[in-house]
């Protein structure tokens, strides 16, 4: 069961990467990165059990935190006026 779940997570990671590369917009990419981060947390937890060393879960906790912080960071700085300014210059 663990192995089946790991494979499923890997497949979902492929899908998230595809969306992250395809875009087409900035928010799609942020969404893909966020989803990828959550799936990485699950993958690390599952890998710990598959390899018989569940102490790896510390890393999964760090991942969950870091993922949240980087999504907030991307949103914060994609709101910043310089990006909007470059949008306005175009129009």
């Amino acid at each position: 069961m663990l192995i089946a779940a790991t494979l499923a997570i890997l497949i979902v990671m492929v899908m998230a990467i595809t969306r992250g590369i395809m875009g087409p917009t900035l928010y799609d990419r942020i969404l893909a990165v966020n989803m990828f981060g959550t799936k990485t947390v699950l993958l690390i937890s599952l890998l710990g059990f598959v390899m018989g060393r569940p102490e790896f879960l510390d890393i999964a906790i760090v991942y969950a935190l870091i993922n949240f912080i980087s999504v907030i960071g991307v949103l914060r700085y994609s709101d910043s006026s310089i990006f909007k300014h470059s949008n306005q210059q175009k129009k």
């Binding site: 900035l26 893909a32 990485t40 390899m51 991942y63 993922n67 980087s70």
Partner: peptide, 28 residues
């Protein structure tokens, strides 16, 4: 900006790769 987001994914991936290679501190 998209490149930075992909670099974030790159970091996550190489860390899971390190976990799979048993190098837990490096992955951390």
């Amino acid at each position: 900006l998209a490149v930075i987001m992909l670099l974030g994914i790159y970091g996550l991936l190489s860390a899971s790769f390190f976990v799979a290679m048993d190098a837990v501190d490096v992955a951390f």
